[in-house]
């Protein structure tokens, strides 16, 4: 009996190992009627989050540009600027998007390579030197694939610039990315990107009969902030004063940082 059992066990172990082995003769068999189709996945419509990315640094060491030189640079040219952090979007995956401004102009740093530790130090007023490439996306001029270093010394936070009178004019774009305000805007429509709180809020406002698209960008201001909550309570017809960064998407599309109902 024992010999028989031992034999059975040995046989079962042998077969167990055989079951583990990668047998080419098995091939890939689909559960469907088509035996040649391999197990597969549907493709994504949209890119998913990549692992940590490292920006490729411009090959040559550039001298620091003025804003005028930066604006004169061709798209995809390497650029180097020194500027001051005004706000940041959420840090994620060693990247952070930063709103910066200097005395001569403002910059939008798209997905700046940045550790989480350094991201915490990118507080308003902090001076940084940025090396990246000048690009444009849907009208928004920005710096991408960039790295940065902290510059010790001075800091700068600009006074908010009232550009209400420039709405609808060609002059407005000269202030792209700057910290600006708009006074006496009439709310036309408030709509959540997803139809309900939790995502960006699209704010349509008008002035002198012209409509303009603004946005509460949750990666900038979050859903728990006063501005997010306040915008959610607005109704058509409310007259508001708005502060924010003059972002661009197929035209002016300011990212709102504060909003007050005008008295």
């Amino acid at each position: 009996m024992k010999k028989f059992l031992a034999l059975l066990l040995a046989l079962s172990m042998l077969l167990a190992f055989a079951a583990c082995s990668d047998s080419a003769s098995n091939g890939t068999t689909d559960p469907s009627t088509d035996p040649t189709t391999e197990s597969t996945t549907a493709a994504t419509d949209e890119a998913t989050t990549a692992p940590t990315t490292e920006a490729t640094e411009p090959e040559d060491q550039l001298s620091v540009m003025t804003f005028e030189e930066y604006m004169a640079a061709e798209l995809q040219a390497p650029v180097c600027v020194e500027t001051y952090v005004q706000a940041t979007q959420s840090w994620w995956d060693n990247k952070i998007t930063v709103y910066c401004q200097s005395e001569d102009g403002a910059y939008f740093l798209y997905e700046l390579a940045c550790s989480e530790e350094d991201a915490a130090k990118l507080v308003p007023g902090t001076k940084i030197r940025v090396n990246g490439y000048k690009t444009e996306f849907e009208g928004e001029v920005e710096i991408m694939d960039a790295t940065f270093e902290f510059i010790e010394g001075d800091s700068y936070i600009p006074q908010v610039l009232d550009v209400t009178a420039l709405l609808g004019t060609d002059e407005l774009i000269a202030h792209q990315n700057e910290f600006v305000c708009f006074k006496g805007m009439t709310v036309e429509e408030i709509s959540y990107k997803n139809g309900e709180p939790g995502d960006d809020i699209y704010v349509t406002v008008s002035k002198d009969g012209q409509s303009y698209s603004f946005c509460v960008e949750i990666y900038l201001t979050g859903t728990e902030t006063q501005v997010y909550q306040t915008v959610g309570t607005l109704s058509a017809g409310d007259v508001v004063d708005i502060e924010g960064f003059l972002y661009w998407y197929q035209g002016a599309n300011p990212h709102i940082t504060s909003i007050t109902v005008a008295g």
Binding site: N26, T28, P35, S39
Partner: peptide, 8 residues
């Protein structure tokens, strides 16, 4: 085991 896991 991937190939084998696509069992028929």
């Amino acid at each position: 085991t991937a190939d084998k896991l696509l069992l028929g």
